[in-house]
Amino acid sequence: MRCQPQSTHQVYIWLKNKQTCLLCDETTDALFPICTGCETDLPWLGDSCERCALPMPMAGLTCGQCQRQPPAFSEVVVPWGYDFPIDSLVTRFKHQAKWPMGRLLAQLLGQALQHRFAEGLARPDCLLPVPLASKRLRQRGYNQAEMLTRWLGTQLDLASDERLLLRVLETPAQQGLDAKARQSNLRKAFAISPGAQIKGKHFAVVDDVLTTGATVNTLSRLLMDGGARRVDIYCLARTPKPQD
C-alpha cells in the first residue's frame, strides 16, 4: 500500500534509549534489548580451537580434527557455546519466526566482531549466508542465515551477497547426523552462481550454529577452489563434539 513507509526509512525516533530486556523483561538502558546481567550470564565461549572454535581445555590449542584434516576456512568467530539461553533464542528465531531474538543475537555478534577487527582480525570483502534448500525455505518462509547476514552487513558496514552461493541439491536435514554422514550428505549440494567474482577476495560465511562444520567447510572449499583468497566463518554458537 502507498501509505506504508518504506523499510529503509526511520519510523520511530526514541528520545531515551529505554527498552525491555528480551530475556528477563526488565527495563534496561543498554545499547541492545538485553540487560547487563543477562548479557553477562550468556554462555560465552571460553578456550577453543584456534581454527574451528571447538571448546578446548585451554587457550592456544588446535583440535585433533583440524590437525589431521585442516579445514578450508581460516578461522571461526563465534561468541557463545550452544547452551541455555542461546539455544532457546536460536530455536525461537530459526523455527518460530521470533525475529527480535535473531536481531539481538546478530547485534551482539556484530559487537564481538567489531572488537576482533580492532584487535587485528582482517575485515572480509563480503558476507555470504549459508543458502537454504528451496523446500525448507518454502516451509519456513525465510533463511535465518540470510537475515543474520543483512543485519551484520548493516551494522559492520560490510558488503553482502545473498545469491553468490547456491543450494543446487535438496538433501536431508543435517540435524542428528555425525560428521561423516554430514559430509556425504553435502556432496555436490552447493554451487557458485555463474559469473560470480570471487578470485582474490576474502569472504565470511554466516550461519547460526556450528556443529561438525561440514556445511561451512564444504562452502569454504568451494570458494577457495574458485580462487578466493581467504574464507572465515561467523556464527552465533558452537556446539561441543557431538559424542560429548
Rank of each mutant, 00 (worst) to 15 (best):
N143W: 06
M58Y: 09
N217Y: 02
I13W: 15
D29K: 09
G153I: 03
D161H: 03
V11G: 14
Q174T: 00
R182M: 12
P242W: 08
Q197T: 01
A97R: 14
E119A: 12
Q139L: 12
E26I: 12
G227Q: 08
K18F: 12
R163W: 01
S193W: 06
C35G: 10
L121A: 08
P85L: 10
Q6K: 00
L105Y: 04
L109W: 04
A204E: 07
I86G: 03
L113D: 01
D29G: 06
V168D: 01
L148F: 12
L104V: 05
A118Y: 08
T91D: 02
L109Y: 09
T27N: 09
K241M: 12
F117D: 01
M58V: 08
Q4H: 15
V78N: 10
M1E: 14
L223R: 14
D207Q: 02
C66S: 04
S184K: 15
Q174C: 05
L42S: 05
Q114M: 10
V130F: 04
I198C: 13
D157T: 00
I86S: 02
R103I: 11
L105M: 14
T20Q: 10
A179R: 15
L158H: 06
E50Y: 05
A53P: 02
P33L: 08
E146K: 13
T27K: 11
V76S: 06
G120M: 07
R187V: 12
S160K: 07
Q174E: 02
E146F: 08
T36R: 14
G110N: 02
T28D: 02
G195L: 04
V168Q: 08
S74T: 15
G141M: 10
L42P: 04
D157F: 03
N185E: 07
K199G: 10
T211Q: 03
T171D: 04
L109E: 03
P70G: 09
P57Q: 09
L104I: 05
R123I: 00
Q6P: 13
C35P: 14
K180T: 13
N143C: 11
L169T: 10
V90F: 05
D178M: 09
